[in-house]
Amino acid sequence: MATVPTPRTWTVGELLTAAKLNTDLRNGLNFLLSGKPLAILGKTGNQTIPNSAWTTITWNSETVDRDAGHDNATNNSRYTAQTAGYYRVVAALLWNSGFTAKIRQTMVVKNASLAMFQGTGFGDADGSFASSTSLGTVFLAVSDYLEVQGMQATGSSWDVVPSSTRFELEWVSS
């Protein structure tokens, strides 16, 4: 769990020391620059999504996970908050090509029951590309978790492909 620094209130006449500067200034800057929770999750293979059914996306690749909120083996569909606060979230699914003008959707769900935000995408006219992205900011208490779900309406099962499919979370404020 990342420790969010507590700002110091200085008093008149207080002696400035290197230890106080390190604790009060350096540690706060280090947290903001390289210590705040950040996760970028991805996939290494396709995942088949049935027609017209919301399906939880699994993540088996981590570019970064500073706060150990994700595990590639256990509950690999989840990011579990280790540090409370507001998180900026992006969930992007790249769908296999081939169907044109069919709906693809992405939804971020909190604690398996509360839909936080949802995005919709459509295929290109030539069927070569389709994506859907969901983004927003959400408050997470310690142990709250987020999952990404995908849904498509092509008439048959369809794949989410690993290229550009990602789940990103960044702590922005307490």
Rank of each mutant, 00 (worst) to 15 (best):
K20G: 00
K20T: 00
K20N: 00
K20R: 01
K20F: 02
K20I: 00
K20M: 02
K20W: 02
L21S: 00
L21A: 01
N22M: 02
N22C: 00
N22D: 03
N22T: 01
N22P: 01
N22V: 03
N22R: 01
N22A: 04
T23L: 07
T23H: 02
D24R: 03
D24I: 00
D24W: 04
L25G: 06
L25T: 05
L25W: 07
L25Y: 05
L25A: 06
L25K: 07
L25E: 04
L25V: 05
R26D: 08
R26Q: 11
N27Y: 01
N27C: 00
N27A: 01
G28A: 01
G28P: 01
L29Q: 06
L29A: 09
L29P: 06
L29F: 05
L29K: 06
L29S: 09
N30F: 10
N30C: 10
N30K: 10
N30E: 11
F31C: 03
F31Q: 04
F31L: 02
F31G: 07
F31S: 01
L32Q: 09
L32I: 09
L32W: 08
L32Y: 04
L32S: 11
L33N: 13
L33I: 12
S34G: 11
S34C: 07
S34V: 05
S34L: 05
S34E: 09
G35N: 02
G35L: 04
G35A: 09
G35I: 03
G35F: 05
G35T: 03
G35K: 03
K36G: 07
K36T: 08
K36E: 07
K36L: 11
P37S: 11
P37I: 08
P37M: 14
P37V: 05
L38S: 13
L38Y: 14
L38C: 12
L38W: 14
L38A: 11
A39H: 04
A39F: 10
A39Y: 05
A39T: 10
A39G: 02
A39N: 04
I40H: 15
I40C: 15
I40A: 15
I40P: 15
L41S: 11
L41F: 07
L41T: 02
L41E: 10
G42A: 13
G42S: 12
G42T: 07
G42C: 07
K43N: 15
K43I: 14
K43V: 15
K43H: 15
K43M: 15
K43L: 15
K43T: 15
T44E: 13
T44R: 15
T44H: 13
T44Y: 11
G45A: 14
G45E: 14
G45C: 13
G45V: 12
G45M: 12
G45W: 13
G45Y: 14
N46K: 08
N46T: 12
N46Q: 09
N46L: 07
Q47H: 12
Q47G: 14
Q47C: 14
T48S: 14
T48C: 09
T48Q: 10
I49P: 09
I49G: 13
I49Q: 12
I49L: 11
I49M: 12
I49S: 13
P50N: 11
P50Y: 06
P50W: 07
P50M: 04
P50G: 03
P50D: 04
N51W: 04
N51P: 14
N51I: 06
N51L: 05
N51C: 06
S52P: 10
S52I: 14
S52T: 15
S52R: 13
S52L: 09
A53G: 02
A53V: 04
A53W: 01
A53Q: 02
A53D: 04
A53C: 01
